[in-house]
Structure formats: C-alpha cells, structure tokens
C-alpha cells in the first residue's frame, strides 16, 4: 500500500466515512474508493454489496482476482428517551456492536441506576445532540412520546442524514407528528424517512419485544439493499 493511500484511508476513517481498498492479487496494484465514488465505479455493485454487509472479500472480475477491504465506521445508536424500551434496547444494541448513547432531559429517567454502564446525557436534545456527532452511520430512535423532546431530536437526525430514524407512537400519533414537523418546514421526502410506527411488524408486546422489532428494523436498513429493506418494513402486520 502506498503511504499516500494509507494516509487517505486513515483520513476517511477518522471522519467516519466508509472507504474500500481494491487490491489486484496478481499485480499488487491497489486503489482506494471513497463512499461518494462508489456509484460511478466500475465495481459499484460489488463495492456496494461488500460495504452493506461490512464484509471484506475476494471477487473475480474478467479473470482477475481482486480483494476488497471494507472500512466501515462503527455504527452508533442514539436513543432519545431513557424509557423502559430503551432499557431493553441499549444492551441489545451493544451486543450488536453499536456505540450506544441515551439522551433524556428528565433526570428521573436518565439515571445510572436504570442504565448501568450506558452513556447517558440528561440534557435537552439541542444541548445533547451537537456533541454526539450524529452522522450517516448513526441509527436514531425517538422514544419519549413527548413532542417537546422528540420533535427537535428528529429534526436534527433528518438534517444529519442518519441511516435509520424511527419514532415511537401509533399511526395517529405519527400523523400528528408529521403535521407539526411540516409546519416547522421539514420536507415531505425527509418526513417519509421516519420509520413509524417504529420496528418491524412482529406483534411485539413487551418493551423487550419492541426492542427486538426496532433492532431488527435497524439491521434490515443497514444490511439489505435499499429497495428490499423498504419493501420489508412497509409490509403490513
């Protein structure tokens, strides 16, 4: 690897932008592909698939063996609301290798006793979120049921282009939320990105089951081709 390629790769990684390295196994020839250049690349299909799966691997193209090394940032999960579902969701997300943070201005909820070992920020979203570097490798869930807390948080998540944004609440609650956010100037395509009711339709009842539904939906969004993930989560219960 050229020193220059390594420096560029490390710069992408430090900025939490995905990048792939393609190495020709016969010649040792090598190139770096940044996330923004994948679509126009001759290997776009293979690069997209490997990045989505977060899996490095060998591909054969025109008789050439090429090794694709995937460098994907560690995914983050930001939870708005230190509620019962969050208590089940936080350890689950950790087990799936997410960096987890819980935000809730209500100190009675955001207490270390309720969330042992989980980073907690007992602040309003406008104070808590800027320091969290919410980015496209972040999954974002709003679980408080309180528009004063959830709405500004969701607006921030949409601006930061989180790969997954979900909000707790029934269809009726969500319809009201859409109305409020529209009045604040959030565009329709942006609003359509919010998964609500949150989670895959698996008939979840308990907080832990709802956490499973949420984590499954996040995983589908991260791993499946965009169209397939959309079809999956739109399926009726």
């Amino acid at each position: 690897m050229k020193a220059e390629t390594l420096a560029q790769l490390n710069a992408e990684r430090a900025a939490r932008r995905p990048a792939l390295v393609v190495t020709d196994m016969a010649s040792g020839e090598q190139r770096l592909v940044k996330a923004k250049d994948i679509a126009a690349d001759e290997l776009s299909g293979e690069l997209d698939r490997h990045l989505r799966m977060g899996k490095s691997g060998m591909v054969e193209v025109n008789g050439r063996k090429l090794f694709i090394t995937v460098h994907a940032p560690t995914a983050k999960l930001v939870m708005i609301g230190a509620v019962h579902i969050s208590q089940a969701l936080a350890p689950m997300a950790r087990a799936l290798d997410y960096d987890v943070t819980v935000v809730d201005p209500r100190t009675a909820f955001a207490s270390p006793e309720r969330f042992p070992d989980i980073p907690l920020i007992a602040e309003w979203p406008d104070v808590a979120l800027p320091q969290l570097n919410v980015d496209p490798y972040t999954a974002f869930v709003a679980l408080t049921h309180d528009p004063k807390i959830d709405d500004p948080a969701l607006t921030h998540a949409l601006e930061r282009k989180c790969f997954y944004i979900g909000a707790l609440g029934s269809r009726k609650t969500h319809a009201k939320r859409i109305e409020r956010l529209k009045q604040q100037g959030v565009s329709e395509p942006a609003l359509a990105r919010i998964h609500a009711p949150i989670g895959l339709a698996i008939g979840a009842v308990s907080p832990a089951e709802i956490a499973v539904a949420i984590m499954a939906e996040i995983t589908a969004t991260l791993r499946m081709p965009k169209d397939a993930a959309a079809a999956k989560v739109k399926e009726p219960a």
Binding site: A3, N10, R13, A14, V70, H71, A72, P73
Partner: peptide, 25 residues
C-alpha cells in the same frame, strides 16, 4: 465487520512517518 480494531492502520501510518519500514498483512 464493524471495524473496532483498525486503529492499527493509524499506527502503520505513524510508524511509516517515523521512518520505519512497515508491512501490512
């Protein structure tokens, strides 16, 4: 693979800058 362990690439870069011969496996 969500890359937790690849700060080693940063170390490879630092070694190189410090004048070391470096290999990547």
């Amino acid at each position: 693979m969500l890359s937790r362990d690849d700060d080693i690439l940063k170390i490879a870069e630092d070694w190189k800058k410090a004048g070391h011969g470096v290999a990547l496996a």
